[in-house]
């Protein structure tokens, strides 16, 4: 495993730890989109189906279990925890999952590498992950008060796939990898969606101002 890949995974892991920390320490999920979190549960469940079929490494299996467990844990907190769920921005988190899940699934049925159950779901998970942040970004645009933990959470979550892009370039040249359009393009689109957010996040950090996204 190369440094970009490891940095990407650690950034992803850190973003989740930060979100759980915010929820547990402040007993609040204000500013967090339940829609996005539920989409991540779908993403991980469809991508990590091979957990029980193919063994890659202890690291790989452990991380998959962590991502599955934490994503479900976050959704549980937001839906069922008696204190946390009352802080959820129900009225502002209006994005419909359906409009993301269905097109991604249809696209996976049309554009994939092999027509097998695992491969279709894997492809679907890549397409869905690339757009899963949209409800969260829409919610942030509507929020007048974005706390630091939420801002940094979204920043790390965006940075993770960007680091994977470097990982793919590195693997392409060092491991005789062929061109992999499906993950590469999905990852590129996923990172591009964050561009605006990155700009405002870094600017607010440099100017020591509170993060605010233009509506």
């Amino acid at each position: 495993m190369n440094a970009f890949r490891l940095a990407g995974d650690m950034t992803h892991l850190l973003s989740i730890i930060l979100l759980l920390l915010k929820i547990r320490a402040t007993k609040s999920c204000a500013g967090i989109s339940l829609k996005t979190q539920e989409l991540y549960v779908i993403v991980f469940m469809s991508r990590y189906l091979d957990l029980f079929r193919t063994y890659y490494s202890l690291y790989n299996s452990l991380m998959k279990i962590i991502f599955l467990g934490t994503s479900m844990c976050i959704v549980w907190y937001m839906r069922s925890h008696k204190v946390v769920r009352q802080t959820y921005n129900n009225d502002e988190d209006t994005f419909r999952h359906f409009f993301l899940v269905l097109p991604c699934f249809v696209l996976a049925l049309l554009v994939h590498r092999n027509f097998t159950f695992i491969e279709i779901l894997w492809t679907f998970s890549l397409y869905l992950e690339s757009v899963a942040i949209l409800p969260q970004l829409v919610l942030l645009q509507k929020s007048s008060n974005i706390d630091n933990l939420t801002g940094t959470y979204v920043f790390l979550l965006g940075a993770y796939r960007g680091l994977y892009l470097f990982n793919w370039v590195y693997r392409f040249f060092t491991e005789n990898h062929r061109v992999r359009w499906i993950p590469w393009l999905s990852g590129l689109i996923q990172t591009a969606i964050y561009t605006d957010f990155f700009y405002y996040y870094i600017r607010s950090w440099k100017n020591r101002e509170k993060l605010k996204l233009p509506a």
Partner: peptide, 10 residues
């Protein structure tokens, strides 16, 4: 020749 493709990634 079944390659693991990029399935070894997360």
């Amino acid at each position: 020749n079944v390659e693991p493709e990029l399935h070894d990634e997360l």
